[in-house]
């Protein structure tokens, strides 16, 4: 039972093609990514502690918004991630649909719950920032409204993926939906933004009109990088678990688990 040895018929291939080819093999992907996950988590934790220390302890309070400004060190990176993950998911979906690569399908679909989590964080942090700043928990402000629609888009993808029994069909259907959503997302964003100005909603901007001080910018950037490592680690973890789940009856899964036990 040697599952791991792969026969490569054409010896002369360039390194990138070989890498992509190998990534398509579930056991190889499983073992290769397994090495990165602990490092990603470690970098995430170190950066988060550093960023939060700078943001929550070191940075001065904003002279317009006071202490509540500190919520933005969570809200803004989470909002960036919610959009970044959706676009990543759409690009992965496109690749998955065109080349029918199972690993890419799985990566696209496991992105969705992480993106939804960041969207929820963005919404709750935004509304808790809104209470002291605007005086209410919820304002139909353009950013919050777009985020809410984005959450619905994520939930649609997750819902469709989980409703269809056959995993690959489910992934392809949900990938197509993710792409349709990605085409619509800019339209939704601009129409909501414009709708907001039309109905003269809240006019307080995120930075409160004050130019951002470097001491406020640094923690924001560090948190933005930290969340990317969170996404990477979480995505790979989820993708590996999904592979185990789908290949539960295949030999490589048992091999992998036996190795770990012994």
């Amino acid at each position: 039972m040697n599952v791991k040895t792969e026969k490569i018929s054409k010896p002369r291939k360039n390194a990138l093609v070989m890498f992509i080819h190998k990534m398509g093999s579930p056991p190889w992907f499983y073992n290769f990514t397994g090495k990165f996950i602990p490092w990603f988590w470690a970098i995430f934790i170190v950066l988060t502690i550093w960023g939060l220390y700078l943001g929550l302890v070191k940075a001065p309070a904003d002279y317009l918004q006071g202490e509540s400004f500190r919520i933005l060190y969570l809200h803004v990176p989470a909002a960036w991630m919610s959009l970044l993950i959706y676009s990543t998911m759409a690009v992965l979906s496109f690749i998955a649909l065109v080349w029918r690569i199972r690993i890419v399908e799985i990566l696209a679909m496991t992105s969705a719950p992480i993106g939804a989590a960041f969207t929820i964080v963005t919404l709750t942090a935004g509304s808790l920032w809104g209470r002291p700043t605007w005086g209410t928990y919820w304002v139909w402000d353009a950013r919050l409204t777009s985020e809410l629609v984005l959450l619905f888009l994520y939930l649609g993808v997750i819902g469709l993926y989980n409703s269809i029994d056959e995993p690959r069909k489910a992934a392809r259907a949900a990938c197509l939906l993710a792409m349709v959503g990605a085409v619509n997302l800019p339209i939704i964003h601009y129409s909501v933004k414009w709708w907001n100005t039309l109905h003269q909603g809240s006019s307080i901007s995120l930075t409160g009109g004050s130019s951002i001080d470097p001491s406020m910018l640094w923690p924001l950037l560090i948190m933005a990088i930290a969340t990317k490592f969170y996404y990477g680690a979480n995505l790979l973890t989820r993708a590996r678990v999904k592979l185990l789940e789908q290949d539960i009856r295949k030999a490589w899964v048992r091999e992998v688990l036996k190795e770990k036990k012994g």
């Binding site: 339209i187 939704i188 909501v192 414009w194």
Partner: peptide, 15 residues
Amino acid sequence: LLSLLVFPLYVPILI
């Protein structure tokens, strides 16, 4: 499920 999928896409038209 259909309503969850399409309503977000209808937002710009409604607006």
